[in-house]
Amino acid sequence: MTYEGRGVAIVSTICGPSGICFDSPKDLRPANQAQGIDSAVETWTGDDFEVTVDQGPFVDPLTRYGERPEFVASDGEVAGRPVRVVEFIDDDGSRVTGAHFPGQQGEGESGVGGTGRPPVTVIVRSSPGMPKDAALQVVHSIRFPGA
């Protein structure tokens, strides 16, 4: 999977408490940064645009949206990690672009509380007026700590 979008202008680079960073075509402000027992959720919002990063063993793998309008799915690589990218129109008319990065167990570890990487799902929700490429650009700009 390669991304050959039109190149929406980048307004800011955002790095959350998890160390996961992405480029944004909108000014976004933190809306929610929560650390649970088994997950961490970070959300940023701005005009017509929202990005949520969910990290933990029970994140949404983005496998149950095939019946949504304008559904498209592809597998590829972002930031050197395998990723499943989906796009669809949600019930409220917003465009949803999601990226699921599967977890990876550390050598000799269970992956839960071990040295492996937990799964990460990033959801970009944008208003119908935002260019489709804006959300894809966010997804393809994702960077992980230590990468």
Rank of each mutant, 00 (worst) to 15 (best):
A147K: 01
P17T: 12
D90R: 14
P30R: 01
E87P: 06
S39L: 07
V85W: 11
V85P: 03
S24A: 15
R64Y: 04
S110A: 06
D38S: 02
E77G: 00
A34Q: 15
D91S: 10
V51G: 12
S126H: 12
Y3H: 02
T52H: 02
P25K: 08
P61A: 05
E109N: 08
E87W: 11
I10K: 04
G129W: 09
R64K: 12
A147Q: 04
I14H: 05
F22C: 14
A40D: 10
P102K: 01
G114T: 05
V53G: 04
G66M: 03
L28T: 01
V59A: 02
D54W: 03
V86M: 11
G19W: 13
I14N: 03
Y65F: 10
D27N: 13
S127A: 15
D38G: 02
T13C: 05
G66R: 03
G36P: 04
G36E: 10
A40T: 13
T43W: 06
P131T: 03
V86N: 03
E107C: 08
P119D: 00
E109S: 13
G129Y: 07
A147G: 11
P82M: 13
I123A: 05
E107T: 12
D90M: 09
R143S: 10
I89G: 07
K26A: 09
G76M: 11
Q35H: 11
E109V: 11
G36V: 08
L28H: 07
E42A: 02
P30F: 02
P102T: 08
P17Y: 08
Y65N: 13
P69L: 10
E67W: 05
T2V: 10
P102R: 03
R143T: 13
A73W: 00
S126P: 08
P17G: 12
T52P: 05
A9D: 14
F88H: 13
K26G: 05
Y3F: 03
Y3K: 03
V83E: 05
R117E: 15
P131I: 05
